[in-house]
Design a binder for these strands. Sequence first.
DNA 1: TTATGTAAAGATAATAATTCTCCTTTAAGA
DNA 2: TCTTAAAGGAGAATTATTATCTTTACATAA
Lengths: 140, 140
Amino acid sequence: MKTIKLRDKLIEKGLKVTPQRIAILEAVHKLNSHPTAEKIFDFVRKDHPNISMATVYKVLDALVANGLLSKVKSEKDSMRYDAVTDKHHHLYSSDSEDIADYYNDEINKILSDYFKEHNITDFEIEDVRLQIIGKFKNRN
Amino acid sequence: MKTIKLRDKLIEKGLKVTPQRIAILEAVHKLNSHPTAEKIFDFVRKDHPNISMATVYKVLDALVANGLLSKVKSEKDSMRYDAVTDKHHHLYSSDSEDIADYYNDEINKILSDYFKEHNITDFEIEDVRLQIIGKFKNRN
DNA sequence: TTATGTAAAGATAATAATTCTCCTTTAAGA
DNA sequence: TCTTAAAGGAGAATTATTATCTTTACATAA
Ligand SMILES: [Mn+2]
Ligand SMILES: [Mn+2]
Ligand SMILES: [Zn+2]
Ligand SMILES: [Zn+2]
């Protein structure tokens, strides 16, 4: 995604446009691997050697709160960040920390139709996400 | 679940039977709310005032590794533990830290049938779990 | 039944991830 | 250009978890 686009998204949300925010947004897009805050920090530091870890966390929080990024749960202690904010699911590796995106509108429809007919007692569904656990093949 | 049952499960797995292990297993069963290590510690401490937090973590790890408990991912920093080790899904509250179990064999079959016919490129599925996010109603 | 080896428990330090506090800088609008 | 609120940087603090080291006690066999 173009920097100018990211800039517009920030403005749209009433957030100040700062080099750090642009850099962090770009980093998550470029890394494209559900990076941790640490990974993002290391990447951004190349161009912004004075950026602080606290800034990374504060910016990530703000971007997630405004829907420009999303958070992904992981088995490990650290949070993972995601440039994809559209509805999608995740493939989790059972033997590494790899997480991959999984888009499937067919299954979205199956689930949405199912839960339209079978509602859960005392629970109002807002979103349904799949955690697909398994092994990535052809990795070298 | 009876203490004697828990004792047998430990023996079956070749784990030494200790009062701490029994107490922690019982605690997770009794709390029945996907408790954190801290919550488990507080509960167990009533009967075992000398138990250490390190023991709680070590025992939880051992029990999870041996399939007597399971772990549940959460949005927050801390892990949650689950007495239910059978296949099931989770309802996550979008406005609190509540997590509830959700069993549904019908949907298990739908998903398993679906993925039997539509396999994911370069990925071998081991398990599919639903994260159902929404709001619990009738809570007081 | 007691002795003994080993796995586990307890105390506490260390580490890792995240948040907070406080001060300085800067983006954006007047 | 000036003003000001919002954001960034440095580092301390907090929280969750893990590691290390010593002591205890479960399990088994003499
Ligand atoms: Mn943490
Ligand atoms: Mn941690
Ligand atoms: Zn994703
Ligand atoms: Zn559960």
